[in-house]
């Protein structure tokens, strides 16, 4: 196998893993799997691209502004499209449709506002997209940094879950009412998780934009591949998501080089189906007991 294919699979896989982690952040306390997550990633990339490339804002300022803006949009989504539905019923039909509706609204609004042309985003200072030719692979310094940053981010997120606040999140995911009785407010955790999950999605979009460009087509693509990484790596398991992200990224790259690029999605789809058929809870999870 070409080492270049492998390297690009890992780069793409890192991005999928980040999307999967952003799904997990949102999912853990709310048990909601946000169908607008892909569009939040896209929105992050678009806002950041506009602020840096078009408005000429410094990298860090634009970074912070984007995270806060998209985080707030996630919060608005939770308030309007998720919380009222969850208050009525916890079963899935409702929020699947409302978060999907949110994704339609965001993607079409962005499409109207920014237009279909992709925006080029430069990597931050000291890094570039020029190929480095290490080990006969055409990987750039930015892509290497992206792989490392992903690793660090996943470790940080895992660390946070081990703190008291993190345990509270897990408690709510396990049993909403029991957590409530112990003085944890599921409502506030839900709001925070949407804010943070959306901000994390925006960060993923920013990190992705030098590699993939900022465009409206980012959303649906990353939504499905992020889902694939989250499902294969077991929902809620961030390390699992990281490894599954690599698996998906490499499979996709290999599939595309062996067959044709048109088969990318089909190959991933079959991998996901096969994993879910054999291990419904994903590769790194244990089956949960249902409580009655």
């Amino acid at each position: 196998m070409d080492i270049d294919v492998l390297a690009h699979g890992i780069v793409a896989g890192s991005l999928y893993a980040l999307v999967a982690v952003s799904f997990n952040i949102l999912y853990r306390p709310t048990n909601v799997f946000n169908f607008a997550q892909g569009e939040l990633v896209m929105l992050g990339a678009m806002i950041f691209a506009s602020l840096t490339s078009l408005a000429g804002m410094p990298w860090l300022v634009a970074f912070a502004a984007t995270l806060i803006t998209v985080g707030c949009i996630g919060l608005i989504e939770e308030r309007i499209a998720v919380a009222p539905i969850l208050a009525r019923s916890q079963t899935g039909t409702g929020w699947v449709i409302t978060t999907l509706a949110t994704s339609l609204i965001i993607s079409n609004f962005v499409g109207r506002f920014w237009g279909p042309d992709p925006i080029l985003v430069k990597p931050p200072a000291l890094l570039s997209m020029e190929s480095l030719d290490i080990l006969s692979s055409r990987i750039s310094s930015y892509e290497i940094a992206l792989i490392l940053v992903t690793l660090v981010l996943v470790l940080i997120v895992e660390r946070i879950y081990r703190t008291l606040k993190g345990k509270a999140v897990m408690a709510v995911a396990e049993d909403r009412e029991a957590a409530l009785l112990r003085g944890i407010d599921p409502g506030s955790l839900g709001r925070w998780s949407f804010f943070l999950g959306a901000a994390f999605a925006a960060m993923t979009g920013i990190l992705a934009s030098p590699v993939l460009y900022a465009s409206t087509s980012l959303g649906p693509d990353l939504l499905l591949k992020g889902f694939a990484a989250a499902a294969v790596g077991s929902i809620g398991n961030n390390r699992g998501a990281l490894i599954a992200g690599y698996v998906i990224g490499v499979t996709e790259a290999v599939g595309a080089s062996l067959l044709s690029p048109g088969y990318q999605e089909a190959v991933i789809f079959i991998v996901v189906l096969a994993v879910l058929l054999l291990k419904p809870e994903g590769l790194f999870g244990s089956p949960n007991a249902r409580t009655v």
């Binding site: 309007i80 499209a81 009222p84 539905i85 409702g94 449709i97 409302t98 999907l100 509706a101 949110t102 994704s103 339609l104 609204i105 079409n108």
Partner: peptide, 10 residues
């Protein structure tokens, strides 16, 4: 469509 889906479900 998106707005309608959201509004109807709510």
């Amino acid at each position: 469509y998106g707005g309608m889906l959201l509004g109807l479900m709510l």
